[in-house]
């Protein structure tokens, strides 16, 4: 520890610099989750807001586990959670399979080409997410670019149904989240010492052996970071399944949205959110923290 970071918040402005973002986050990030928890144990009523208060008129505590019991016993919700998790997991794997060679290729290209290639990966990320999903609507349509091409070349006689299928959702997920996978992978692969791979090959390792024994373990931090950045948001994704998926492709992000806005069942929507939080976010964050701590201890 050196002089600068040894200052234990002794200056007023330092305290202020911590306090301001701290208070903001407590009010606008932590408090909302307490409210979600509170509303998830309420009953829906016809009022504004459409929930029963936690403390009733006569001062009694009004809590119910009905929403959670319903979520856990209703088969439809269990299937929806499972489907969301599986689709997000498969999309993450696809991103990894496509993103890894690309990140590797960028990391191994000449420095001048490298910055252009990186720019081309980042550019779509800056362009509106919604518009990128929209672009696929024009491609995957029954009368869209791809089908017109397939019919025109005679590969198929009739347009293939691609829009409003799970296939379209996967395309949308992989397309939207691919940069999130490539960038952390690139960051770790770029720092990797390529001499290690060459040394292994000089010592007689086959390229696949060199890859699995050297490159893959060294790239692991990037793989984990990339997978997290894709998997968590993909699980709760709303826009992509709404625009590209069929009406029967129920995913949890959309169920939450509809439960809240269409059915106006605020308590159930809150319970859906809490379960999603406990199912996905918290386990992953804990896992990530443990691994970061292990890595620190190793280093």
């Amino acid at each position: 520890m050196n002089g600068v970071s040894n200052n234990r918040l002794n200056e007023t402005w330092q305290r202020f610099a911590v306090a301001l973002p701290y208070i903001w986050l407590l009010v606008f990030f932590l408090a909302p989750f307490v409210i979600i928890l509170k509303i998830s144990v309420a009953d829906p009523v016809l009022a504004l807001p459409p929930v029963t208060p936690l403390i009733g008129d006569s001062g009694q505590l009004q809590m119910t586990a009905d929403n959670y019991v319903f979520l856990l016993t209703d088969k439809l919700y269990a299937i929806t959670y499972l489907r969301s998790l599986m689709m997000a997991a498969l999309a993450t794997l696809l991103c990894l399979a496509i993103g890894f060679p690309i990140a590797y290729g960028i990391a191994r290209s000449k420095p001048s080409t490298r910055s252009v290639l990186l720019l081309l990966i980042i550019l779509p990320f800056w362009i509106s997410f919604l518009l990128r999903v929209y672009a696929w609507m024009g491609l995957l349509n029954n009368y869209g670019v791809i089908n017109n091409f397939l019919v025109w070349t005679g590969i198929t006689s009739q347009p293939l149904q691609m829009m409003y299928t799970d296939f379209a959702i996967y395309v949308g997920l992989v397309y939207s989240y691919l940069p999130f996978m490539i960038l952390p992978l690139y960051a770790t692969l770029e720092r990797m010492d390529l001499n290690l791979v060459e040394a292994a090959q000089d010592l007689g390792a086959r390229p696949s052996e060199a890859f699995w024994n050297i490159t893959w373990p060294l790239a692991r931090p990037g793989v984990i970071a990339g997978c997290l950045l894709v998997f968590i948001p993909a699980t709760g994704e709303y826009v992509i399944p709404y625009l590209l998926g069929g009406p029967e492709s129920l995913l949890i992000g959309r169920v939450l949205f509809d439960e809240f806005f269409a059915n106006r069942d605020w308590p159930l929507a809150s319970a859906v959110a809490v379960v999603l939080l406990f199912l996905v976010v918290i386990p992953i964050v804990i896992l990530q923290r443990n691994q970061a701590r292990d890595a620190e201890q190793l280093a």
Partner: peptide, 22 residues
């Protein structure tokens, strides 16, 4: 640290719902 970083990983539907309820 947790408070600063978590909005990044939270699914948007959860953050949105939580803020509206607040």
């Amino acid at each position: 640290t947790g408070l600063v970083m978590s909005p990044m990983v939270m699914p948007e539907v959860i953050t949105g719902l939580a803020l509206l309820l607040l």
